[in-house]
């Protein structure tokens, strides 16, 4: 089952720091957005017809934090990129849709004072993180390829049976995500609660990022390199389920979109759990076991 792979790129200190910062931002903002909106009190950078939309954005942020902190500990870019690219998609996407929907921002539209103070902070932080993420990801591609100092080039491919469901899961999330970002007016009706354009596009960005992560895992085809991405998905499913349960009265449960959403969340949970189980006791690439280091060649 194991094979070897080519030389790889070192993960820069800037990229690792970005992951820590995005992790802290996602943890604090995710907790705030998910908790407040789950209680039915609208809180977020833009105005919404229903708190659940921004609560789900918070749930997605909160759920990805274990993966982001794992990303910060990676040594090689190839271990990090399955989550790094979704981070680039999420941050640039959120900053673009925030600017596209600037008229819905509380600081422009008006609204509660707490949200009013939160909305410029959101714009500044998301924009700064988006620029930083793009710079880090592009700079990584310019770094030279080297064989890891420990000479550890073993890989652990995904089992064959997992690939078709992963492809379906990744396509579903990226498909609905693209739809919501590009045509929020049409695809917003497929969200099983009331959303406006800003809600639909922000949720679309997160769905797209999740899809990129799942498809990236499939493309990487190496459980030792995808640990941060695998750690990021089950938390999203759990946090989203908690927020959905707390605002259950706002969801049109007897609808196709609600059923689809539940299946897609269950898929994320299953993919994450299976990935963690299959990768158990396998050290991440770049962190040698003492015995291996002691045996040259």
């Amino acid at each position: 089952m194991s094979a070897t792979r080519d030389a790889s790129r070192e993960l820069s200190a800037g990229s690792a720091l970005l992951a820590t910062v995005v992790g802290v931002v996602a943890l604090l903002n995710g907790l705030l957005l998910a908790a407040v909106n789950a209680f039915g009190v609208l809180f977020g950078p833009w105005v919404s017809p229903e708190p659940l939309g921004q609560g789900m954005v918070g749930a997605a942020m909160l759920g990805t934090t274990p993966g982001l902190f794992a990303l910060a500990r990676c040594r090689r870019w190839e271990e990090a990129r399955t989550l790094m690219w979704p981070v680039v998609v999420a941050m640039t996407g959120l900053s673009v849709v925030t600017l596209l929907n600037r008229r819905s921002l509380v600081m422009v539209h008006g609204g509660g004072i707490v949200n009013f103070l939160y909305s410029p902070d959101w714009v500044l932080v998301v924009t700064a993180l988006a620029l930083w993420a793009v710079v880090c990801a592009v700079a990584q591609l310019w770094r030279p390829r080297t064989v890891p100092p420990d000479g550890d080039t073993e890989r652990l491919p995904l089992p064959g049976w997992s690939k078709p469901p992963l492809a379906v899961l990744g396509s579903s999330w990226s498909g609905i995500g693209t739809g919501l970002v590009a045509l929020p007016g049409y695809w917003g009706d497929f969200v099983p609660w009331q959303v406006n354009r800003a809600d639909a596009q922000a949720l679309g960005v997160w769905a797209l990022a999740l899809g990129v992560g799942v498809l990236g895992t499939l493309a990487e085809d190496d459980l030792r390199r995808t640990r941060p991405a695998v750690l990021a998905v089950p938390g999203v499913a759990v946090a989203a389920a908690v927020v959905l349960a707390a605002r259950a009265e706002a969801v049109h449960w007897a609808s196709g979109p609600a059923l689809s959403l539940l299946i897609m969340l269950l898929g994320l949970l299953a993919a994450g759990a299976a990935g963690l189980w299959l990768g158990r006791d396998r050290k991440p690439a770049g962190k040698p076991r003492p015995a291996e280091v002691a045996q040259p060649g």
Binding site: L17, T20, V21, P149, V293, G297
Partner: peptide
């Protein structure tokens, strides 16, 4: 804070790379 974190991350990565023996195996020998 970010400046300090970045400096410490740079040192941590440099020392982690330096401490691990540079053993380059032949491709396909794993």
């Amino acid at each position: 804070s970010l400046r300090t974190l970045h400096a410490r991350e740079t040192v941590r990565r440099a020392s982690a790379g330096a401490l691990v023996p540079s053993v380059v195996p032949e491709r396909g020998s794993a």
